[in-house]
Design a binder for these strands. Structure first.
Lengths: 343, 343
DNA sequence: CTGTTAGCGCATTCAA
DNA sequence: TTGAATGCGCTAACAG
């Protein structure tokens, strides 16, 4: 409500003096005056006009968070517990650093650029963007950017990013399933054709077969539809073709939970008749019954490191690493069992 | 990057002309010139400086979302699927209305006021705030505010709000449990001493007993700790005192799911040995096994109506209603069974 | 149809 | 130790 000018008037001094007090330039203001002004500032609940600050500094105190939204689907991924968890963590970090957080769901590169430009963003965190878009954004945005769980088209180009050892996650889980005797293992993901979290996990899946001296499956990759009904139809298909696979490896707990739910309704016994593995280790995998055997990742850590990296860049410093790759570990729960070898 | 001034220079016209084109004042600019300027605008990817706009209009295009955070807990409630769902809905509505969304978790009234003032917020949506804080905020904030799931201390004062028929939800579920033969029903919530979502549901709980001609239970209200371990201890206590209650009615699916998980681990059969009911009807209640019998609410609708109400206020119009109370309905699933009467 | 100008609130430089 | 002046980008009233 009140401006520096008004505060100055109340205190009977010039705006500059008030500004000096606000910015802690104690050597420029007498102690008595300083106290008086501080008191008025509090009474008036002075809050700087961020618009004026933006104008003055050509930079805002806003960190933008971009959440990928499937084009035309209209619904964002924020309901996935993994996503909401990382957003919660980022909010905390951003707030504690004295910044503000703007959240925006989009799948349009130009919208991201416009967003960053119009708000003169201090920084940008981009979550789970497909490579085509993230590469393009990285090149043309003026603010520092940290990518989380993004992959890029050009293998050489390195952007500041925090991700997971997705390949290893895919590898270890597949090895775990192989160790349990499974040989016909389906891999189910959103997309695996271009560089992405899912394609890396799928690479791991194939490498595990190779490392075990087994032929790499050619007909076991399934792309999950964005449409829930179509996904349910796919799960149903597995139920009807019990010989095709003995284990399903989902690239996200969200879908693993959905599948368990659907298949259990059909009377299928999990894991006895079909083993199911997930990826992420969130709320769902712990609460689902049977509890989901999954690949664990530390989401809070991921969010914290991304924020730390971003604020290093905001300070115009160079982060020690361009790319942080967080470890994974297998969490064996109940949804995977030994393959019953019928002989 | 580029400003109106720079665009004007490129086009060889004055800034006003460019501004007129931007604002669609076609009657003030010749068609040929308009096209030329529009082309340059696109090429340069002109994005207005929102700081300058804020300064000029004394108002931003930002809608602030306040999420209540337990003091000292540090963790927000964003991980509750109910909360992330409504945030996702609000994001969509705000974006489609041409606004931007800032998210902030806090439990401090002054922080909310400072936040609204410093950003000259176009509007504010306040989620699930305790009455003491929401009443205070409502009085002193300059921007239009819509409260979602908030209750107020003064019974007379009405603010713009969207909520649920919480009392009825508590009533209907309790009646449902009574119909199933349960008499010893615990009510478990975050807080029920001051006006809140939980206290209203608790009122419904008590009214159902009264309506059934039964004595209102005096020792069956349990306040859930913010600390997970303490909550688990409470669930354990119920397992150890099977005679005390035959049904637990939780004020949120989140906790109901947590309890089912915990109690199932102890070998308790749900619902055979203990019936459990929830409130919200989200992801968890559908995926949990057994599926949770719960009170359904339409979260997407809630978010949409809150946004609609807010933008009505932003346009300085008067919403048709000050308080929207959305209906509930019981969703009977699997976690509640008939009480086995031992005779 | 087109251009000039003042002022929104703030930080900062320079002058007193 | 304090104050006056400037300019950041934009809008809108006004002048041409």
């Amino acid at each position: 409500m009140s401006t520096i000018k008004q505060i100055a008037e109340l205190a009977g001094v010039s705006p500059t003096t008030v500004a000096n007090v606000i910015h802690g330039k104690t050597e420029k203001v007498s102690e008595a005056l300083r106290k008086k002004i501080v008191k008025i500032l509090k009474e008036e609940k002075y809050a700087p006009n961020q618009g004026a600050l933006m104008l003055k500094r050509s930079r805002s105190h806003i960190v933008g968070i971009i959440l990928f939204m499937e084009p035309r689907s209209g619904s964002s991924s924020i309901e996935d517990p993994f996503v909401s968890r990382i957003i919660g963590t980022l909010e905390t970090e951003i707030r504690e650093a004295g910044y503000f957080m703007m959240l925006r769901c989009t799948s349009d590169k130009d919208e991201v650029l416009h967003f960053a430009a119009t708000w003169k963003l201090a920084g940008l965190v981009i979550l789970c963007m497909p490579s085509e878009i993230s590469s393009a954004v990285a090149k043309s945005v003026a603010s520092p950017v940290v990518f989380v769980d993004c992959y890029f088209e050009e293998p050489g180009s390195k952007y500041y990013s925090v991700k997971l050892d997705d390949e290893k996650g895919g590898f270890e889980m597949t090895r775990y399933l192989l160790d349990k005797g499974h040989r016909d293992i389906a891999f189910l993901a959103n997309a695996a054709d271009f560089p992405s979290v899912d394609s890396a996990r799928y690479d791991g899946y194939r490498n595990a077969f190779k490392a075990a001296g087994l032929a790499i499956p050619r007909d076991k990759l399934f792309i999950l539809s964005k449409n829930e009904k179509e996904r349910l139809r796919l799960y149903l298909w597995f139920a009807k073709h019990p010989g095709f696979c003995t284990a399903l490896f989902f690239s996200a707990d969200y879908y693993a939970a959905e599948a368990i739910d659907c298949l259990a309704q059909l009377g299928l016994k999990i894991p006895d008749q079909l083993s199911i593995a997930g990826f992420d280790d969130n709320l769902l995998s712990r609460l689902q019954n049977p509890k989901i055997t999954t690949v664990h990742q530390d989401v809070v850590q991921k969010g914290r490191l991304a924020a730390k990296m971003l604020f290093t860049l905001v300070k115009k410093e160079i982060p020690p690493q361009q790319e942080l790759v967080l470890p994974i570990r297998i969490v064996a729960r109940e949804s995977v069992s030994n393959r019953i070898v019928s002989s």
